[in-house]
Design a protein around this nucleic acid. Sequence first.
DNA 1: CTACATAATTGGAACGTTCCAAATATGTCA
DNA 2: TGACATATTTGGAACGTTCCAATTATGTAG
Lengths: 348, 348
Amino acid sequence: MTKGRVTVIDIAKAAGVSKSTVSLVLQGSPLVNEGTRSKVNAAMRELGYVYNRGAANLRQASAKSKIIGVVVNDLTNSFFAELAVGVDMVVQSAGFVQFLSNTSESIDRQREVVASMREHGISGLIVSPARATEAADLKPLVAADIPVVVVVRSLPGAKVSSIVSDNQGGTSAAVEHLASLGHTRIAFLGGFPDTAVFEERLAGYAGGMKAAGLGFHEELVVSSAPSRAGGVDAIGRAMAMADRPTAAVCFNDAVAFGVCDGLRARHMEPGRDFAVVGFDDVIEAQTAVPALTTISVDPQSMGRRAAQLLLKQINAGKAEPESITTAVRLVVRESCGAAQKKAGRKMA
Amino acid sequence: MTKGRVTVIDIAKAAGVSKSTVSLVLQGSPLVNEGTRSKVNAAMRELGYVYNRGAANLRQASAKSKIIGVVVNDLTNSFFAELAVGVDMVVQSAGFVQFLSNTSESIDRQREVVASMREHGISGLIVSPARATEAADLKPLVAADIPVVVVVRSLPGAKVSSIVSDNQGGTSAAVEHLASLGHTRIAFLGGFPDTAVFEERLAGYAGGMKAAGLGFHEELVVSSAPSRAGGVDAIGRAMAMADRPTAAVCFNDAVAFGVCDGLRARHMEPGRDFAVVGFDDVIEAQTAVPALTTISVDPQSMGRRAAQLLLKQINAGKAEPESITTAVRLVVRESCGAAQKKAGRKMA
DNA sequence: CTACATAATTGGAACGTTCCAAATATGTCA
DNA sequence: TGACATATTTGGAACGTTCCAATTATGTAG
């Protein structure tokens, strides 16, 4: 009874047809007679048949493996968790399944997981590359005609599609907002200068400063690790300057939180004595004190779009690289001081 | 040149050996001569060979597929994201890869993804079951000798391994702490009564009350949805009672946050006018205002343990169901009022 | 009844690997 | 040298599916 697994041949025998017919039923072919189809389906239920995709993939192109790989650089960051959820949504409803791996920013780990995914015959890959990733790392994939969509961080020179948020537009809007609040010495804090994301956000900052007639001053940008600790460090250096800034747009929310910590350590209250704007709108941004004014990039919808693009390329067979930048929006909370005039809540 | 994929046969031809030998090299067999091995490896690098696991799994038992499935009920909840990271860590270093899916608490979705994973021949499954999951849902898996580890929520009557946190110990400790602070009317707020987790946490609460000599009073437990909104609702009903409680242990952190909201709506300050304790220690717990006193269950280590257990069972071939409960610890912050005597921070 | 189109079904040959039993090479001992 | 053990290699035959060309059944027009 429980000897070995149930195969199409067992089904064929039970339904009194040939294995070819069973295969046709499996693929929903219109060629098979309605009566036969239901007989076969009945037999499958009866025997508890489970489809063996591995065997099927042996014959078919790997585009039919129905596996899509997702590689993120930091799953503990809720931004990426949300992204993965977005991907999963559309991928799942298209009958695909998601292979998800976390590289923890390690390039070696990334190589390993991508290799492993290839062995399993993924039909496509969505990747938020680890820090030092180079275009060459994805070369073998595209050579094998496996569609790849890079998200969040763009990969200079790679012939693959990418979806990034409008980093430039975001920081530009942040500067504009701070300027409208009367700030003139606005700093740009945090982030590693050797990344594409940094360049874009910095460009938006610079553009915003010029547009506001404040000019771009090199000394107002102080880089650091894109983390909470990095933020503490950056604000420290900023406050050591002769002509101190009164506001800052930060590389991301983590840095912004660190900046707030650093301000308090200097007995300054973020939102009252100094304006802080973050980037990402992570989940803690709204519950933190003061609530963080930040640039919101809906990671879930980003994931959804990435998945849609990837599926389109998988179905098309050939993948024309395509670049999408998704809109961001400034969400004004308390840390920029704009809410100050509103009823003085006891606790801010 | 680029015609078709590179197979063992191509490698064999290039290295001047038979495909069988190549296969042995692939499997790291000690039977093959060192010289031959390196010749073969060289050929593989040369031709850009990629192993086809699908084909291999056709011959081997599914235990060698090197895929382990992970199904969680809510990936947007950082608790589960952390859990998945923990799983990924050990799974990855054992040379496996993780199939991760999110059910969003939908039992149908869960059925789909589990079925899909089976088709792909997973060697094992780690699942945090969606709400209405029954033991029968996992029956086919165990019948097929696929090891299953249930995490977070236990599944009554299923013959599978499980890892849950010490819910009972956690709430019991929470009550003890509140009692030591002088509270006598301590409520248990939130959660759906028809779940195993609720029962366990309630039992801990009841035990703690009795142990503290306060007795268990039915009217002090008010259930609700295990969400922020549910918390608002629950505290509302609790405050409508004649003999009001002065403290509450909540079903989870989300409920606790809702309770705080509800208290403020009644012009009461959590931590000062009413003591609140949560459960889970989600990431926001420490940044919220007031910082939430809660029961911490390290999800990442839980994920690691689940993966270890699963791998053990996969390697053992046969899986003896095993039940583990992981320790929890009370982390005292501000919402319980214990920190009151400490220097009055401006902002709490 | 023949000729032909259409609908439905089918047997075998792939796909890329592993496993087995058997073959070959190499060394050792009497 | 022959006999035997040991180390290494090898040709098929699986595994469970899909694809193709070929077959059979059914209907319809001449």
